[in-house]
Design a protein around this nucleic acid. Structure first.
Lengths: 199, 199
DNA sequence: CCACATCTGTAGCGAACACTACAGATATCT
DNA sequence: AGATATCTGTAGTGTTCGCTACAGATGTGG
C-alpha cells in the first residue's frame, strides 16, 4: 500500500501567511479566499490540512504561541522581577509596532467579540492571553520566594496589571500608535510596577 | 401635500438595542437579522432610518458618545488631576462590568480589525476613543495651568497612559474579568499616575 | 375626503460566504 | 511496474449575507 501524494506546500510557511491575514483582518473579517491566496493553496488543500477555518486559526495560534514562548523565555529569564517587567513591557511595545507584522497582537486583534457560531474564537484567544499572564505570575511567585519581591506583594495582581497594560497597548497600536508612544506608556507602567513592589 | 406615515418605533430605544448587539458580537459578528429582531423592526424600517449597517453603527456610536460625554463630565469636573484619574479608572472598572451592558466597551469590542470593505469601522471606533483621550489631555493641560500638576509633567503622556489602561481593561473584561479584578488594576495604575505626577 | 408622502411587512434579490465533489496527478510500498 | 493512498485544481454546492422591490397601511395638508 502506498502513502499517498505528499503535500506540495510547507505547512509552517502557510501558517505564517494565514497568521498575518487573521491578525490584520480579525477572524470574522478574514475570508477563505483571502487565506488561500495568501497561503498560495486551494481550498481543498486548506481543508485537508486544517479541517476548517477555525481549525486553521487554532493551528496558526499554536504556531504563534510557539514563537511567543521562545520570546517569553528571554523575558522570564531576566535576573529580577523588575527587569522581567521592563523587558515584557518594552519588548511588547516593539513587537506590536514591528513593521514585519500587522500592528498589535494576534491574540487581541484576532477577535474580542464574535458572532453566533464563532463564540469559541474569543474564548480561544483569551486562553492564550491567560497563558502569558500565568507565566508572569509564576515568575513573580518565584521572585517572591527568592526575596526579590516583598512579602506583601501579590504576584497575581502584578501579572494581571502587566497583562492589562500590554492589551491596552494592542488597542492603541491598532489605531496607529507609534513605537515611541507605546514605549512611553510602557515606561509609565513600569513606574507603577516599581511602586507596587515597594509596598 | 401630506407629510407621510410617521415612524412607528422609537429611534433612540432601537439604537440602544442595536448598541447592545454590536457591543456583544462586534460589528462583523452582528447580522441584520439579529439587529432587526433586537430592535423589533423589519429591514426596510432599519434602512429607511439609518441607511446601512454601517450607518446604524455610526448612529449607535453617536448615542453612545452622548451618554459617555455626560459620564465624562462628571469625571472631568473632579477637583484635582489625581481625582480625575481615580474617577476615570474606577468608573471604567465599574462600567465595563456593569451587568446591564455586555462586558467591556463598545469602542473596543465593536471591532479592532475588520474585513475588506469595513475598514472604516475600526477607524471610526478609534476616533471616538481618541476623543476621550483628548478630553483627558485637555483637563490635564488645565491642571498644569492651575499648578495642580508640575511643570515637567506631560499631559499627553498621562492621557495616553490612562487610555491604554482602560482599553486593556476592556480586553480583560471581555474574557470574564470581574469588577474586583479591574478595580485592582485601576488601583495599581493610579499609583503610576501618582508617581508620574511627582516627577 | 382626497391627494400625497412616508412608513411597514412580506418576500426575495444578487453576491459572497464557508465548504466540498470529483477527477486527475503524484508520491510510496510491494 | 502496479496497486493504493493522499494531495491538487476546477468548479461548483447550499446557505447566509446585506439589502431592496413592492404593495398595503397610516399619517398630514388642502
Amino acid at each position: 500500500m502506498g502513502m499517498g501524494r505528499p503535500r506540495a506546500f510547507d505547512a509552517d510557511a502557510a501558517l505564517d501567511r494565514a497568521m498575518d491575514v487573521f491578525w490584520r483582518h480579525g477572524y470574522e473579517g478574514t475570508t477563505i479566499a483571502q487565506l488561500t491566496e495568501a497561503m498560495s493553496i486551494n481550498p481543498p488543500s486548506l481543508y485537508a490540512a486544517f479541517g476548517s477555518k477555525e481549525g486553521l486559526l487554532k493551528a496558526a495560534l499554536d504556531r504563534y504561541t510557539e514563537k511567543r514562548d521562545a520570546w517569553m523565555d528571554k523575558v522570564l529569564n531576566a535576573q529580577t522581577a523588575h527587569e522581567v517587567a521592563e523587558r515584557f513591557l518594552m519588548e511588547h511595545a516593539d513587537a506590536q509596532t514591528d513593521p514585519a507584522n500587522p500592528p498589535g497582537c494576534l491574540l487581541v486583534q484576532g477577535g474580542l467579540a464574535c458572532g453566533t457560531g464563532s463564540e469559541n474564537v474569543p474564548f480561544e484567544l483569551a486562553a492564550r492571553r491567560t497563558r502569558t499572564e500565568d507565566q508572569l505570575r509564576e515568575r513573580f511567585v518565584r521572585a517572591k520566594a527568592e526575596h526579590d519581591l516583598g512579602e506583601n506583594v501579590d504576584p497575581a495582581t502584578l501579572a494581571r496589571y502587566l497583562s492589562a497594560v500590554t492589551s491596552g497597548m494592542c488597542v492603541m497600536a491598532s489605531s496607529g500608535a507609534t513605537r515611541e508612544t507605546l514605549r512611553e506608556i510602557a515606561a509609565v507602567s513600569l513606574k507603577a510596577f516599581e511602586e507596587q513592589t515597594k509596598g
